[in-house]
Design a binder for these strands. Structure first.
Ligand code: FES
Ligand code: FES
Lengths: 152, 152
DNA sequence: GTAAAAAAGGACACAAATATCCTTTTTTAA
DNA sequence: TTAAAAAAGGATATTTGTGTCCTTTTTTAC
Protein backbone atom coordinates (compact mmCIF):
# COMPACT_ATOMS: atom_id res chain seq x y z
CA UNK A 1 0.00 0.00 0.00
CA UNK A 2 2.53 2.57 1.15
CA UNK A 3 6.33 2.63 0.85
CA UNK A 4 8.58 2.33 3.89
CA UNK A 5 9.31 6.01 3.41
CA UNK A 6 5.65 6.92 3.74
CA UNK A 7 5.12 4.56 6.66
CA UNK A 8 8.06 6.02 8.59
CA UNK A 9 6.91 9.52 7.69
CA UNK A 10 3.47 8.87 9.15
CA UNK A 11 4.73 7.12 12.25
CA UNK A 12 7.41 9.73 12.92
CA UNK A 13 5.05 12.65 12.51
CA UNK A 14 2.45 11.09 14.78
CA UNK A 15 5.14 10.28 17.32
CA UNK A 16 6.47 13.82 17.33
CA UNK A 17 2.97 15.26 17.67
CA UNK A 18 2.34 12.81 20.47
CA UNK A 19 5.44 13.11 22.60
CA UNK A 20 6.83 16.51 21.72
CA UNK A 21 5.98 20.16 21.79
CA UNK A 22 7.63 23.47 20.99
CA UNK A 23 9.11 23.46 24.50
CA UNK A 24 10.05 19.83 24.47
CA UNK A 25 11.49 18.98 21.12
CA UNK A 26 12.46 15.48 20.18
CA UNK A 27 15.79 14.32 18.77
CA UNK A 28 16.16 11.95 15.87
CA UNK A 29 17.56 9.27 18.16
CA UNK A 30 14.47 9.20 20.32
CA UNK A 31 12.11 9.38 17.37
CA UNK A 32 13.73 6.46 15.57
CA UNK A 33 13.67 4.41 18.75
CA UNK A 34 10.08 5.42 19.46
CA UNK A 35 8.74 4.21 16.13
CA UNK A 36 11.45 1.68 15.62
CA UNK A 37 12.82 2.73 12.32
CA UNK A 38 16.37 3.09 10.96
CA UNK A 39 17.76 6.32 12.39
CA UNK A 40 19.63 7.86 9.46
CA UNK A 41 16.97 6.96 6.98
CA UNK A 42 14.32 8.48 9.20
CA UNK A 43 16.43 11.64 9.47
CA UNK A 44 16.34 11.96 5.69
CA UNK A 45 12.58 11.56 5.68
CA UNK A 46 12.18 14.20 8.37
CA UNK A 47 14.13 16.55 6.12
CA UNK A 48 11.41 16.17 3.52
CA UNK A 49 8.75 16.90 6.10
CA UNK A 50 10.53 20.00 7.41
CA UNK A 51 11.05 21.61 3.99
CA UNK A 52 9.32 24.99 4.29
CA UNK A 53 8.01 23.82 7.67
CA UNK A 54 5.34 22.10 5.71
CA UNK A 55 4.51 19.56 8.38
CA UNK A 56 7.31 19.35 10.91
CA UNK A 57 9.34 22.20 12.39
CA UNK A 58 12.92 21.81 13.52
CA UNK A 59 15.58 23.71 15.41
CA UNK A 60 19.30 22.93 15.38
CA UNK A 61 21.74 23.01 18.21
CA UNK A 62 21.48 22.14 21.91
CA UNK A 63 17.88 21.73 23.01
CA UNK A 64 16.99 21.58 19.38
CA UNK A 65 14.94 18.90 17.75
CA UNK A 66 11.66 18.34 15.99
CA UNK A 67 8.17 19.45 16.91
CA UNK A 68 4.79 20.32 15.44
CA UNK A 69 3.19 23.72 15.58
CA UNK A 70 -0.48 24.02 16.39
CA UNK A 71 -1.05 24.89 12.76
CA UNK A 72 0.68 21.69 11.68
CA UNK A 73 -1.38 19.57 14.05
CA UNK A 74 -4.48 20.64 12.19
CA UNK A 75 -3.13 19.45 8.84
CA UNK A 76 -4.71 16.40 7.25
CA UNK A 77 -2.72 13.17 7.18
CA UNK A 78 -2.61 13.63 3.44
CA UNK A 79 -0.13 16.49 3.95
CA UNK A 80 2.39 13.92 5.20
CA UNK A 81 1.88 11.79 2.12
CA UNK A 82 2.28 14.81 -0.10
CA UNK A 83 5.60 15.67 1.52
CA UNK A 84 6.97 12.25 0.57
CA UNK A 85 5.23 12.33 -2.81
CA UNK A 86 2.90 9.47 -2.22
CA UNK A 87 -0.48 11.13 -2.12
CA UNK A 88 -1.27 9.53 -5.45
CA UNK A 89 -2.50 6.36 -3.70
CA UNK A 90 -5.80 8.14 -3.45
CA UNK A 91 -6.08 8.89 -7.14
CA UNK A 92 -4.41 5.98 -8.95
CA UNK A 93 -6.11 3.25 -10.95
CA UNK A 94 -5.86 -0.03 -9.09
CA UNK A 95 -4.73 -1.78 -12.29
CA UNK A 96 -2.14 0.88 -13.02
CA UNK A 97 -3.79 2.57 -15.99
CA UNK A 98 -2.50 6.08 -16.54
CA UNK A 99 -5.84 7.61 -15.59
CA UNK A 100 -8.61 6.51 -13.32
CA UNK A 101 -11.84 7.95 -14.58
CA UNK A 102 -15.50 7.25 -15.09
CA UNK A 103 -15.12 7.79 -18.81
CA UNK A 104 -12.32 5.29 -19.21
CA UNK A 105 -12.74 2.82 -16.36
CA UNK A 106 -10.79 -0.41 -15.94
CA UNK A 107 -12.70 -3.61 -15.16
CA UNK A 108 -12.13 -3.14 -11.43
CA UNK A 109 -13.06 0.52 -11.37
CA UNK A 110 -16.70 0.05 -10.42
CA UNK A 111 -15.73 -1.98 -7.39
CA UNK A 112 -12.67 -0.02 -6.45
CA UNK A 113 -13.95 3.52 -6.74
CA UNK A 114 -15.87 3.43 -3.49
CA UNK A 115 -12.86 2.09 -1.61
CA UNK A 116 -10.70 4.76 -3.15
CA UNK A 117 -13.19 7.38 -2.08
CA UNK A 118 -12.99 6.17 1.49
CA UNK A 119 -9.19 6.13 1.39
CA UNK A 120 -9.31 9.69 0.16
CA UNK A 121 -11.72 10.68 2.91
CA UNK A 122 -9.54 9.06 5.53
CA UNK A 123 -6.38 10.85 4.46
CA UNK A 124 -8.05 14.18 3.77
CA UNK A 125 -10.53 14.43 6.62
CA UNK A 126 -8.35 13.07 9.39
CA UNK A 127 -6.03 15.58 11.01
CA UNK A 128 -2.78 14.74 12.74
CA UNK A 129 -4.37 16.05 15.94
CA UNK A 130 -7.20 13.56 15.63
CA UNK A 131 -4.73 10.70 15.50
CA UNK A 132 -3.03 12.03 18.62
CA UNK A 133 -6.37 12.12 20.38
CA UNK A 134 -7.18 8.63 19.20
CA UNK A 135 -3.85 7.42 20.54
CA UNK A 136 -4.40 9.13 23.84
CA UNK A 137 -7.60 7.23 24.40
CA UNK A 138 -5.12 4.51 25.37
CA UNK A 139 -4.14 1.12 24.03
CA UNK A 140 -2.80 2.30 20.74
CA UNK A 141 0.68 1.59 19.44
CA UNK A 142 3.15 3.25 17.12
CA UNK A 143 6.04 0.79 17.36
CA UNK A 144 6.75 -2.93 17.22
CA UNK A 145 7.99 -3.58 20.71
CA UNK A 146 7.19 -7.03 21.96
CA UNK A 147 6.17 -8.16 25.39
CA UNK A 148 4.31 -6.39 28.09
CA UNK A 149 3.32 -2.83 27.49
CA UNK A 150 4.70 -0.38 29.96
CA UNK A 151 2.08 2.12 31.01
CA UNK A 152 2.82 5.73 30.08
CA UNK B 1 -0.95 0.57 -3.78
CA UNK B 2 0.29 -2.26 -5.99
CA UNK B 3 3.65 -2.79 -7.68
CA UNK B 4 4.04 -2.69 -11.45
CA UNK B 5 4.46 -6.44 -11.28
CA UNK B 6 1.06 -6.88 -9.64
CA UNK B 7 -0.59 -4.39 -11.96
CA UNK B 8 0.73 -6.13 -15.07
CA UNK B 9 -0.20 -9.50 -13.57
CA UNK B 10 -3.78 -8.38 -13.08
CA UNK B 11 -4.09 -6.71 -16.45
CA UNK B 12 -2.47 -9.62 -18.30
CA UNK B 13 -4.61 -12.23 -16.61
CA UNK B 14 -7.80 -10.31 -17.28
CA UNK B 15 -6.73 -9.75 -20.88
CA UNK B 16 -6.04 -13.44 -21.43
CA UNK B 17 -9.35 -14.41 -19.87
CA UNK B 18 -11.03 -11.84 -22.06
CA UNK B 19 -9.52 -12.47 -25.46
CA UNK B 20 -8.32 -16.02 -25.26
CA UNK B 21 -9.52 -19.56 -24.75
CA UNK B 22 -8.11 -23.06 -24.77
CA UNK B 23 -8.64 -23.14 -28.54
CA UNK B 24 -7.40 -19.65 -29.15
CA UNK B 25 -4.34 -19.09 -27.04
CA UNK B 26 -2.62 -15.76 -26.87
CA UNK B 27 1.07 -15.07 -27.44
CA UNK B 28 3.16 -12.82 -25.24
CA UNK B 29 3.49 -10.29 -28.02
CA UNK B 30 -0.24 -9.79 -28.30
CA UNK B 31 -0.75 -9.74 -24.54
CA UNK B 32 1.90 -7.09 -23.95
CA UNK B 33 0.46 -4.97 -26.73
CA UNK B 34 -3.05 -5.51 -25.45
CA UNK B 35 -2.34 -4.22 -21.97
CA UNK B 36 0.52 -2.05 -23.01
CA UNK B 37 3.26 -3.36 -20.85
CA UNK B 38 6.94 -4.21 -21.50
CA UNK B 39 6.98 -7.56 -23.31
CA UNK B 40 9.91 -9.38 -21.69
CA UNK B 41 9.03 -8.21 -18.23
CA UNK B 42 5.46 -9.34 -18.70
CA UNK B 43 6.73 -12.72 -19.89
CA UNK B 44 8.55 -13.12 -16.60
CA UNK B 45 5.42 -12.27 -14.67
CA UNK B 46 3.37 -14.77 -16.66
CA UNK B 47 5.91 -17.41 -15.65
CA UNK B 48 4.96 -16.76 -12.03
CA UNK B 49 1.31 -17.09 -12.85
CA UNK B 50 1.77 -20.34 -14.76
CA UNK B 51 3.76 -22.10 -12.03
CA UNK B 52 1.74 -25.25 -11.27
CA UNK B 53 -0.97 -23.81 -13.54
CA UNK B 54 -2.03 -21.81 -10.55
CA UNK B 55 -3.78 -19.14 -12.52
CA UNK B 56 -2.68 -19.21 -16.12
CA UNK B 57 -2.07 -22.23 -18.34
CA UNK B 58 0.43 -22.28 -21.16
CA UNK B 59 1.49 -24.45 -24.06
CA UNK B 60 4.74 -24.16 -25.95
CA UNK B 61 5.37 -24.49 -29.65
CA UNK B 62 3.37 -23.51 -32.71
CA UNK B 63 -0.21 -22.60 -31.85
CA UNK B 64 0.89 -22.42 -28.27
CA UNK B 65 0.32 -19.54 -25.93
CA UNK B 66 -1.49 -18.60 -22.76
CA UNK B 67 -5.05 -19.25 -21.71
CA UNK B 68 -7.27 -19.73 -18.69
CA UNK B 69 -9.11 -22.90 -17.85
CA UNK B 70 -12.69 -22.71 -16.66
CA UNK B 71 -11.43 -23.61 -13.21
CA UNK B 72 -9.01 -20.68 -13.30
CA UNK B 73 -11.72 -18.28 -14.37
CA UNK B 74 -13.53 -18.98 -11.14
CA UNK B 75 -10.52 -18.06 -9.01
CA UNK B 76 -10.68 -14.90 -6.98
CA UNK B 77 -8.55 -11.95 -8.05
CA UNK B 78 -6.59 -12.54 -4.87
CA UNK B 79 -5.09 -15.65 -6.48
CA UNK B 80 -3.28 -13.39 -8.94
CA UNK B 81 -1.88 -11.28 -6.12
CA UNK B 82 -0.77 -14.40 -4.30
CA UNK B 83 1.11 -15.61 -7.35
CA UNK B 84 3.17 -12.42 -7.39
CA UNK B 85 3.43 -12.36 -3.60
CA UNK B 86 1.47 -9.24 -3.03
CA UNK B 87 -1.65 -10.47 -1.30
CA UNK B 88 -0.41 -8.90 1.89
CA UNK B 89 -2.00 -5.55 0.90
CA UNK B 90 -5.16 -6.93 2.42
CA UNK B 91 -3.60 -7.76 5.77
CA UNK B 92 -0.92 -5.14 6.36
CA UNK B 93 -1.02 -2.31 8.86
CA UNK B 94 -1.35 0.99 7.03
CA UNK B 95 1.46 2.46 9.14
CA UNK B 96 3.70 -0.54 8.52
CA UNK B 97 3.61 -2.12 11.98
CA UNK B 98 4.56 -5.77 11.87
CA UNK B 99 1.05 -6.85 12.82
CA UNK B 100 -2.34 -5.32 12.27
CA UNK B 101 -4.62 -6.42 15.05
CA UNK B 102 -7.37 -5.31 17.35
CA UNK B 103 -5.21 -6.04 20.35
CA UNK B 104 -2.32 -3.91 19.19
CA UNK B 105 -3.84 -1.29 16.90
CA UNK B 106 -2.00 1.68 15.44
CA UNK B 107 -3.62 5.13 15.65
CA UNK B 108 -5.12 4.73 12.17
CA UNK B 109 -6.39 1.22 12.70
CA UNK B 110 -9.90 2.17 13.74
CA UNK B 111 -10.38 4.17 10.59
CA UNK B 112 -8.49 1.89 8.27
CA UNK B 113 -9.87 -1.47 9.30
CA UNK B 114 -13.14 -1.04 7.47
CA UNK B 115 -11.37 0.01 4.28
CA UNK B 116 -9.08 -2.96 4.60
CA UNK B 117 -12.05 -5.22 5.02
CA UNK B 118 -13.55 -3.92 1.82
CA UNK B 119 -10.27 -4.34 -0.05
CA UNK B 120 -10.17 -7.90 1.20
CA UNK B 121 -13.74 -8.51 0.10
CA UNK B 122 -13.01 -7.07 -3.30
CA UNK B 123 -10.00 -9.29 -3.93
CA UNK B 124 -11.47 -12.40 -2.37
CA UNK B 125 -15.05 -12.26 -3.54
CA UNK B 126 -14.46 -11.08 -7.08
CA UNK B 127 -13.62 -13.81 -9.55
CA UNK B 128 -11.65 -13.33 -12.74
CA UNK B 129 -14.78 -14.33 -14.60
CA UNK B 130 -16.74 -11.54 -13.00
CA UNK B 131 -14.24 -9.01 -14.26
CA UNK B 132 -14.54 -10.44 -17.74
CA UNK B 133 -18.30 -10.08 -17.54
CA UNK B 134 -17.95 -6.55 -16.24
CA UNK B 135 -15.66 -5.73 -19.15
CA UNK B 136 -18.05 -7.28 -21.65
CA UNK B 137 -20.81 -4.96 -20.55
CA UNK B 138 -18.88 -2.56 -22.75
CA UNK B 139 -16.95 0.66 -22.24
CA UNK B 140 -14.26 -0.76 -20.05
CA UNK B 141 -10.56 -0.52 -20.75
CA UNK B 142 -7.47 -2.55 -19.95
CA UNK B 143 -4.84 -0.46 -21.72
CA UNK B 144 -3.72 3.13 -22.12
CA UNK B 145 -4.38 3.71 -25.78
CA UNK B 146 -5.33 7.25 -26.58
CA UNK B 147 -7.80 8.54 -29.06
CA UNK B 148 -10.95 7.01 -30.42
CA UNK B 149 -11.86 3.61 -29.21
CA UNK B 150 -12.22 1.01 -31.90
CA UNK B 151 -15.21 -1.21 -31.26
CA UNK B 152 -14.41 -4.92 -30.72
C1' DG C 1 12.91 -36.29 -38.72
C1' DT C 2 13.43 -31.48 -39.54
C1' DA C 3 12.27 -26.66 -39.32
C1' DA C 4 9.73 -23.24 -37.29
C1' DA C 5 7.04 -21.37 -33.48
C1' DA C 6 6.40 -20.44 -28.97
C1' DA C 7 7.12 -20.41 -23.96
C1' DA C 8 10.75 -21.21 -20.28
C1' DG C 9 14.83 -19.99 -18.31
C1' DG C 10 19.18 -17.60 -17.36
C1' DA C 11 22.13 -13.71 -17.36
C1' DC C 12 22.56 -9.21 -17.22
C1' DA C 13 21.45 -3.94 -17.15
C1' DC C 14 19.42 -0.07 -15.11
C1' DA C 15 16.73 2.52 -11.86
C1' DA C 16 14.54 3.36 -7.57
C1' DA C 17 14.01 2.43 -2.75
C1' DT C 18 16.17 1.68 1.40
C1' DA C 19 19.91 2.42 4.44
C1' DT C 20 24.43 4.06 6.47
C1' DC C 21 28.15 7.20 7.39
C1' DC C 22 30.64 11.28 7.56
C1' DT C 23 31.05 16.35 7.20
C1' DT C 24 29.03 20.94 7.62
C1' DT C 25 26.15 24.37 9.53
C1' DT C 26 23.50 26.32 13.14
C1' DT C 27 22.51 27.15 17.81
C1' DT C 28 22.94 27.20 22.65
C1' DA C 29 25.02 27.32 27.12
C1' DA C 30 28.80 27.84 29.86
C1' DT D 1 34.28 32.94 22.52
C1' DT D 2 34.45 28.42 22.56
C1' DA D 3 32.81 23.62 23.04
C1' DA D 4 29.18 20.73 22.55
C1' DA D 5 24.70 19.48 20.68
C1' DA D 6 21.77 18.85 17.15
C1' DA D 7 19.83 18.98 12.52
C1' DA D 8 21.13 19.53 7.50
C1' DG D 9 23.46 17.92 3.77
C1' DG D 10 26.39 15.03 0.80
C1' DA D 11 28.36 10.85 -0.63
C1' DT D 12 27.98 6.21 -1.03
C1' DA D 13 26.45 1.33 -0.28
C1' DT D 14 23.00 -2.28 -0.58
C1' DT D 15 18.85 -4.31 -1.97
C1' DT D 16 14.77 -4.65 -4.57
C1' DG D 17 12.03 -3.64 -8.57
C1' DT D 18 11.81 -3.07 -13.33
C1' DG D 19 13.27 -4.21 -17.77
C1' DT D 20 15.99 -6.39 -21.80
C1' DC D 21 18.24 -9.94 -24.37
C1' DC D 22 19.76 -14.28 -25.65
C1' DT D 23 19.74 -19.34 -25.31
C1' DT D 24 17.22 -23.61 -24.37
C1' DT D 25 13.37 -26.62 -24.37
C1' DT D 26 9.02 -28.14 -26.00
C1' DT D 27 5.68 -28.75 -29.45
C1' DT D 28 3.61 -28.82 -33.88
C1' DA D 29 3.21 -29.04 -38.86
C1' DC D 30 5.09 -30.46 -42.89
S1 FES E 1 -9.82 3.14 -13.83
FE1 FES E 1 -8.97 1.55 -12.70
S2 FES E 1 -9.62 2.07 -10.75
FE2 FES E 1 -10.53 3.65 -11.87
S1 FES F 1 -2.69 -1.87 13.24
FE1 FES F 1 -2.36 -0.34 11.78
S2 FES F 1 -3.97 -0.71 10.43
FE2 FES F 1 -4.37 -2.21 11.93
Amino acid sequence: MLSKTAEYALRATIYIALKGSEDDKLGIEEIAKGIDSPKSFTAKILQLLTQNNRVISSVRGPNGGFFLTDRARKLPVKAILEAVEEANVITKCVLGLKECSETRPCPMHTQYKDIKKQLKQMFEKTSIQQLVEEFNKGNYFIDNLKGVRKPC
